[in-house]
Amino acid sequence: MKKSMIAYPYLVWMIIFILVPLLLIVFYGFTKTTDQGIVFTLDHFKRFFEPIYIMVLLRSLYLALICTVICLLLGYPLSLILASKEYRHKRVLVLLVVIPMWMNFLLRTYAWLTLLEKNGVINTFISFFGLPKMELLYNQGAVVLGMVYNFLPFMVLPIYSVLIKIDKSIIEAAEDLGADSKTIFGKIILPLSLPGIVSGITMVYMPAVTTFVISRLLGGGQFTLIGNLIEQQFVYTGEWGFGSALSIVMMILILFSMAIMSRYEKEREGGGLF
């Protein structure tokens, strides 16, 4: 009984800030105001299936996919290094991964603006060596860079936390039985770290799909992503219905991918964040 009492404030919190807004979104998504009052409609969803909006969605999914793949390729080796006993500067490295997360996300993204611009730090450095200046800002590459930079820790930390929990005696046993390091990695470390990889992928993919600040600042507004589209409906055109419909589609997509992921996760054991 006591325990459930403690849970009440959280329940109230969740109802106010999660359940109620969610219901509002569903309400706005399926209704429109006409002269006869508020009526049920599917118009907002129909509008979503026009080619331009599908294009925007596909671009968001595509860019987020690239970002996730890069994060995984960069993050996994990094996690391995962090988790290995032999590496001496491990603590410093963990700190370096975590420190940027102490700073505000928006500030970090603004900082990239100054780094990448035509007379910015990187280009000044390049031209110092007599090399031609490069167009670094306002293209797809800059958007992906911004995403990778901001979301990499979300890939590294779950994988790292799984890797350090791997029982070292299993690896020792494999070594005693004559497995070489390739086999140990392929047959032991990689399979055991899968839950971390799965939650890392989810943690990176979701914010990457829905981001709107990165694409606006580093993409110079030229790469409308689904997040930008939703934002635009709420703050500019005031089309809350369409904006809500977009959000619902987005949420369904995320739930769908989470379901696939968690199914995969159940087959292995533990370690995930969800």
């Binding site: 603006l113 035509k118 007379n119 600042l217 110079g220 030229q222």
Partner: peptide, 21 residues
């Protein structure tokens, strides 16, 4: 015109133009 445009910006335009971007 889009291929010619460097970016679609808001308030940042001041910094960008002053800095010769």
């Amino acid at each position: 015109q889009k291929p010619l445009v460097l970016a679609y910006v808001g308030d940042e335009v001041k910094d960008k133009m002053v800095g010769g971007e």
